[in-house]
Every structure is written in C-alpha cells, then in structure tokens.
C-alpha cells in the first residue's frame, strides 16, 4: 500500500470517528435540551459551525499521529509536494465530493418542503457533509488503486 493510500485510509477512519463522536454528543444534547423555535435554530446553527473547526483540528491531530507512527514503523517520509497525479485525483475526488453534498443539500431542502421538522433538515445536512467527505476519500482510494 502506497503512502497516499495509507493516508487516505486513515483520513476515512478519522472522518468516521470524528463525525460519529461529534454527532453523538450533539444529538444527546439535543435530546436533553427540549428546544423549540429560534432556540432550536440557534442550537443547530451552532452545532454546524462548531463542527468545522472541531473536524479540522481533530483530523490534523490524527494525521500528525499517522505521520509519526508511519515514520517510526516504515521510515517513510511524507512527500513534500503534490505532483500532477495527486492533483488530478484530488480534482476528480472533489467533483464527487461536491456532487454528493449537493444531493444531500437538495434532500435537506426536500425535507423542509415535505414539512418535516427543522431537526430532520439539519441532520440530513450534517450527514450529507459527512457522506460527501467519505465518498471523496473512497474515490481517491479507488483512483490511487485503479489508476486515472
């Protein structure tokens, strides 16, 4: 397995881990709070905003741990640059990422149209963010393995 494949496998697991833990905490708080109206909107808005820095920091820490562990076990240093293959794969994966997220966004708006709760809309939006991220990583792994 190449360095990039290992890196993206770790990214996938860290995305699942971070989102799983964060969503678990947020949902348990939501269950306990019994919010309505503007408070409910504020709660989900804050949950979505906080998710971004939390994800960035947590995944950076996990990636640093991976780099250190990988360096110790295989004596392999991470590439200091991204070359043309990396860039092509990155662009193709981003396209998948955006497509899946837009699909999720439409689903979330559809939930509002179908008069589902605000919570359902935010949960769908959060999940579409996670699923799109996972789909992008899986597509990167596929392209590194099968070629462009």
């Amino acid at each position: 397995m190449s360095y990039q494949e290992k890196k993206h496998t770790v990214s996938l697991f860290s995305a699942i881990l971070v989102f799983g833990i964060y969503f678990g905490i947020v949902y348990s708080r939501y269950e306990g709070a019994n919010l309505e109206g503007a408070e409910l909107l504020r709660f989900w808005g804050a949950a979505m905003l906080i998710l971004i820095p939390v994800t960035i920091v947590a995944r950076m820490i996990i990636e640093m741990i991976f780099i250190i562990v990988n360096k110790i076990s295989t004596k392999e240093s991470p590439p200091s640059y991204t070359d043309e293959l990396d860039k092509i794969i990155e662009l193709k994966a981003l396209r998948v990422n955006f497509f899946v997220f837009i699909l999720g966004f439409f689903l979330a708006m559809g939930a509002l149209v179908l008069q589902m709760t605000i919570t359902s809309m935010f949960v769908i939006l959060l999940f579409s963010g996670f699923v799109s991220e996972a789909a992008g990583i899986l597509w990167r792994l596929y392209l590194y393995r099968k070629g462009v």
Binding site: S2, Y3, Y81, D83, E84, D86, K146, G147, V148
Partner: peptide, 21 residues
Amino acid sequence: GVTRQTIVAIEKGKYSPSLEL
C-alpha cells in the same frame, strides 16, 4: 520531480503522464 507512486502508476499503465512529464 514526482512521487514514486506516480512512477509506479505510469509503469503499470494506470496513468498517462502529461506531455511535460
């Protein structure tokens, strides 16, 4: 000026390099 992974992909025919490369 590329990574080893790219050379591996080119050798295996999984990637056609740019004209420059």
